[in-house]
Simulated scan of single mutants.
Amino acid sequence: MSDTQAQPPAPASAPTPSMPVDPSAVRPGTRHRIATIGGDGIGPEVIQAGVKVLHTLAHTSAGTLDLDFVDFDWGSDLYKRTGRFLPQDGLDTLRQFDAIFFGSVGAPDVPDHISLWGLRLAICQPLQQYANVRPTRLIPGISSPLRSVTAPSHLDWVIIRENSEGEYAGHGGRSHSGHDHEVATEVSVFTRTAVRRIMRHAFATARSRPRKTLTVVTKSNAQRYGLVMWDDVALEVSRDFPDVHMDRMLVDAMTVRMTMHPQSIDTVVATNLHADILSDLAAALAGSIGIAPTANLDPTRANPSMFEPIHGSAFDITGKGTANPVGAFWSAAMMLEWLGEADSSARLMRAIERICHQAIFTPDLGGKCTTDDVTEAVCNELRRK
C-alpha cells in the first residue's frame, strides 16, 4: 500500500452529468446482465478488478443492485488460435446482454490495424454504438500538469466522439504494393444522418450540464467537403437547442485552448479521429491516461452499449500488477449510470474519489500501490457505505 499518510475522505462531490439518461428507458433495481471481455494486455487485469468492485458494490447495496456477469475470452489469443477475434455468432451473443464491459485489444505480435478492426470496431460499428463519450475531470487528490488547474471546477469536460464513420469508416485500399508508384487511400466518409445524430446527442449532453455550452471541433478550413457539412449540420441542429451556447474551433486551435484555457471548455463534439486524439490529451491533462473512462453508446438502446477504459493494452506493464484500474472503475460507474442505477454509480464514484484523495495510487500517478491495492481500497470504501 502507499506510504503516504491517509487523508480524511474528500468531501462528496456532485460531478456534472456526462450522459443524458432518459428515466423512461431504464429499469433500475432489475437484474442487469453484463458481458465482460478482458481482451489483451492489461485489459483482463483491470476488468477483473472492475468486476470485483462491482460485486462489492452489489453486495453492499441492500439488495437494490443485481448484476450478472458472463466472461468471454475474445481477443488476440483467440485470433492466433482460430483466425478470429470473436466467434461468428459473437454479435448475436452480445445482443442478449444489457451492457458490455471491455478491457483492451492489441498485442505485440498482431498488427494493430488487424486487432482493432477485428474486435473493438467489429463490436462498436455493427451494434450502432455511434456515440463515444469520454468525460474528463480533475479527481480530488490527482494533480494536473497544468499550473492553472488546481480544483475540479477548473477542468470538467465531456468529449463526444462520432464512433461509426469518418476517418475510421474503413473505406480505401492499396494497389501496386511494393512499387514506387504504390497508391494507398484512406477515405473519410461523412453522412448527414450520422453527423446529425451525433450532433443531437452532443447538444442533449450539453443541455443536461449546468453550463449548457458545446464546442464543435472540425478542420473545415482544409477539409472543405465533409467537415464543412459538419459545420452546416451543427448550425441546423443548434436551432432545436436554443438554450445551448455553441461555439466552433479548428482542431489545432482546440489543442491550444485545452492547455491554455481549460476553464473555457465544457462539452465538445468532434469526428472519430479528432476526438480520439483530443480525448487522450484530455486524460493526460487530468493527470493520467490510466484514469480515463469511455462509453460507447447506442443512444436508441436497440443494442447494448460498451464501456471501457481508454488506456489500451499496455503490454509493457502486463502481468506486473501495476495497471491503474481507476479508468475501468470510472467506466463501470458510467455503465451503471446508463443502466439507470444512478445511486450505485454515485456511490462508486465517491469511493474512487476518496481513495484518490488518500493518494492510493499506482505508479502512473506517482504511487507505489498495485492494482490489487487500489481495488481493495475501493472495496473497503464501499463496505463503509
Score class of each variant (00 low, 15 high):
6 A>D: 12
15 P>F: 06
16 T>D: 15
21 V>R: 02
26 V>A: 05
32 H>T: 10
36 T>D: 11
38 G>L: 08
40 D>K: 00
42 I>F: 09
44 P>T: 01
48 Q>R: 15
68 D>F: 13
79 Y>Q: 04
82 T>W: 08
85 F>L: 10
86 L>R: 01
87 P>C: 08
98 D>T: 06
100 I>K: 03
102 F>T: 03
114 I>K: 10
115 S>D: 01
116 L>W: 07
116 L>F: 06
125 Q>E: 11
130 Y>C: 09
132 N>K: 10
134 R>I: 07
135 P>D: 02
143 S>D: 14
158 V>N: 00
159 I>E: 02
162 E>H: 11
168 Y>K: 07
171 H>W: 15
181 H>K: 14
182 E>M: 08
191 T>R: 15
198 I>S: 07
213 T>L: 15
217 V>N: 12
217 V>E: 05
218 T>R: 02
221 N>E: 08
222 A>L: 10
226 G>Y: 02
230 W>Y: 09
233 V>T: 02
238 S>P: 07
243 D>S: 14
251 V>N: 10
254 M>W: 10
264 S>H: 14
265 I>V: 03
265 I>E: 04
266 D>N: 12
278 L>V: 05
282 A>D: 01
284 A>E: 12
286 A>S: 10
289 I>F: 00
294 T>K: 14
323 A>N: 11
330 W>S: 15
334 M>P: 07
337 E>D: 14
337 E>Y: 13
341 E>T: 02
346 A>K: 11
352 I>K: 01
357 H>M: 10
362 T>C: 00
368 K>E: 15
370 T>K: 08
372 D>N: 13
374 V>W: 01
